[in-house]
Write a protein that binds this DNA or RNA. Structure first.
Lengths: 231, 231
DNA sequence: TCTATTATCAAACATTCCTTTGAATATAGG
DNA sequence: CCTATATTCAAAGGAATGTTTGATAATAGA
């Protein structure tokens, strides 16, 4: 029995650690986790968020409010719209660390990821540094398969916008003499996998960039932007 | 209305993000947060953990189990005891990042910390690098105010063990000609503050090390250990 | 002022989570 | 085998959480 120096201060200690737990609790819901991943792409108003997570407006508003109360997201009003964004880079760090720890230690996560993204053994990746080299030597066609608004808000220089709803239309128009690299929102974003599968089915050499655009940006890679916000 | 490319795969996407949320949920309880902070000091069996968080054995076992299911802690059996530890360094990173984000963004956290630790304006801190310099020049008396078993399991070279339950006995015996620096388990550990207050009340010059022992160790500072485990 | 749009609030139900209680399991040692 | 120790299991009540529904605020523009 270790002597308790917290005697009498237990309620205060509880309250302090409940504070940390409250922030963890804000991330402890799958839909809110999706929201964080989405807002890492750039600020959004409520409706696009609700669409992305397939939830009602009221429920989405509720989730956003909970994230805001924990300090993870901040808001800005413009006319009748309220835009939500991650409060700062550290919040993104927290999300990436959570994603990373989960990937390493939760036994089921590979099975779950395969369930969502399909078997990924055929999807080979290219590292950020290798991509940068190949781009400099003009050896690679780079495509950005995120929705157009996200491309406009910021993309890797030289990337061709191929929005997910126009994959079938635009993929055949890519020149056939070079390898293609696709990127999207992050390691658990389905768009790039979809593009790579489609290209390989046509006999083209295609890989996906490791992780996605936010990771590229954060690791100091060059970016090009026109500062649009979504909806 | 943005077109939904997740149509039909919504259950799989839900399951994937629920996986991330499950790990966040494992941290989303004040008592479990305390457990993580405690296990960052070294492995423990169930009873010392239950003591530290002032909870019943059954409930503590339940919390540890939940952390284990999320992959955040691992176990090892030795005779009748089962020792719990953080699974790896990344789990500690996750906890530190959560602590950091909470400190920055949760409005109440300063008030809560003051409630537990008292007004900290009088507790000045010293950085790790400054401490290292002063130790090399023999300008500082360094005291480790964690429980003895934690000192034995690893401490900063040259630190004098002053367990929290012997503060009043041992503090007067410290030589009076040098500044004293105290450290303990981390930024929200009360022992070092308690020691600094007590010393300053006696007219001694005293500061606390920023953060605590795990942060010192992790940032590459030298350590000395005798590899004991706690009960 | 009136209307349309965007977002939040309030109430209600079902679900999950936390804690306590008492019983059960696993190991060590006599 | 029997007992003591350390830990987990199972059940139950109360609290917190997630979702839906319908009503309520706040702004822009006619």
């Amino acid at each position: 029995m270790i002597p308790q120096s917290t005697i009498g201060r237990r309620p205060a200690k509880n309250a302090l650690f409940d504070g940390f737990a409250a922030v963890a609790g804000a991330m402890a819901n799958g839909r809110r986790a999706e929201i964080i991943e989405l807002l890492a792409q750039g600020e959004r108003s409520v409706e696009p968020v609700a669409d992305a997570i397939d939830q009602s407006l009221a429920n989405t508003s509720h989730h956003l409010r909970r994230l805001a109360r924990a300090g993870l997201v901040s808001t800005r009003r413009d006319g009748t719209r309220i835009y939500y964004r991650l409060t700062d880079e550290r919040v993104y760090d927290l999300w990436v660390t959570l994603r990373d720890v989960t990937t390493r230690h939760l036994d089921d996560i590979d099975r779950l990821a395969d369930g969502y993204l399909g078997n990924r053994t055929e999807i080979t990746t290219i590292t950020r540094s290798e991509l940068q080299q190949r781009l400099q030597r003009d050896q690679t066609t780079l495509i950005d398969v995120r929705p157009r608004a996200e491309y406009d808000a910021g993309h890797i220089p030289g990337a061709i916008p191929i929005p997910p709803d126009q994959l079938d239309e635009l993929l055949p128009s890519l020149s056939a003499d070079r390898e293609i690299v696709a990127y999207c929102r992050g390691p658990y974003c389905a768009y790039a996998d979809q593009a790579v599968r489609s290209l390989r089915a046509r006999g083209r050499a295609a890989r996906r960039l490791e992780d996605g655009y936010p990771e590229w940006q954060r690791s100091g890679g060059p970016v090009e932007a026109s500062f649009l916000t979504i909806s």
